[in-house]
């Protein structure tokens, strides 16, 4: 028996919006510690790793480990039926091939339940190595979204160059080129608006904007986003999910032919 109730159901709605355009389907792995998901997009260019800790749910019950294969577009459609104020409960039996979602209004007057078929998904689980990154940039999530959107007008790729002075995002294409430079500004009044850079070694990497724009669907989850980079390895784009977990997107770089 698996049962997990999140009082702030809107967080789960946002989580689904953050992954459903990148992943068609994925397996939620549930154990006593919480729910997690790891999946690559269909081109195997990016990887999503998502964790929701058991402590964030009330109640959380997982009698034995289970893997729930889910069509994320279907899950997202059903979650659109929940109001932002609703609590969301996810239930799955031990033998069943279905999952049930229960949406409950804050005063308990309205309770909706939706049942969905589970899928058998063959997953290619990757071992994510522990890495110390050369550059870790924290910036407002909305700013990162804006940068990715703006540079998509110019080209298909963005080159991110991080030095101790700041971080520069550059794109070029048929119409010309564009550069956006952000300086460190850790002294701003509001913590959420800060840009901070921790750098061991300068790095320059190029990434497909198409995927970064998919990652930016997680913007409503968190005021800040963290970019972790080292030369010649995948970029990590991390958004916190309230106090209960995180979604990390990994993106393989592009290299010159």
């Amino acid at each position: 028996m698996f049962e997990a109730r999140l009082a702030q159901g809107t967080l789960l709605k946002k989580v689904l919006e953050a992954i459903k355009d990148l992943l068609n389907e994925a397996t939620w792995d549930c154990n006593e510690n919480g729910m997690s998901l790891q999946a690559m997009d269909s081109s195997h260019v990016s990887l999503v790793s998502l964790t929701l800790n058991a402590e964030g749910f009330e109640p959380y019950r997982c009698d034995r480990n289970c893997s729930l294969g889910i069509n994320l577009a279907s899950m997202s459609k059903i979650f659109k039926c929940a109001s932002n104020e609703d609590s969301i409960t996810i239930k799955a039996g031990d033998e069943g091939d279905t999952i049930t979602y229960v949406f409950e209004s804050p005063n308990g007057d309205k309770v909706s339940d939706y049942e969905m078929k589970l899928m058998d998904i063959e997953t290619d689980h990757l071992g994510i190595p522990d890495t110390t990154y050369s550059c870790v940039v924290k910036l407002p999530a909305a700013e990162f979204q804006r940068i990715c959107r703006d540079l998509s007008q110019i080209g298909e790729s963005v080159t991110i160059c991080c030095t101790k002075d700041g971080v520069r995002f550059s794109a070029s294409g048929d119409l010309g080129s564009g550069n956006i430079k952000l300086a460190q500004n850790a002294n701003v009044d509001k913590e959420d608006e800060a840009v901070t850079i921790e750098m061991q070694e300068a790095c320059t990497l190029t990434f497909a904007l198409r995927y970064l724009n998919f990652f930016c669907k997680a913007t409503p989850l968190s005021p800040q986003v963290t970019l972790s980079m080292s030369n010649e390895v995948p970029l990590v784009v991390e958004y916190k999910i309230g106090e209960m977990g995180h979604v990390r997107y990994y993106l393989a770089p592009k290299i010159e032919d």
């Binding site: 690559m40 071992g127 497909a208 390895v233 995948p234 393989a252 592009k254």
Partner: peptide, 14 residues
């Protein structure tokens, strides 16, 4: 033109 690398070139299958 840059070529796009894949995640499987970096992280091993488990």
């Amino acid at each position: 033109q840059d070529s796009q690398l894949r995640m499987t070139q970096f992280f091993p299958s488990e």
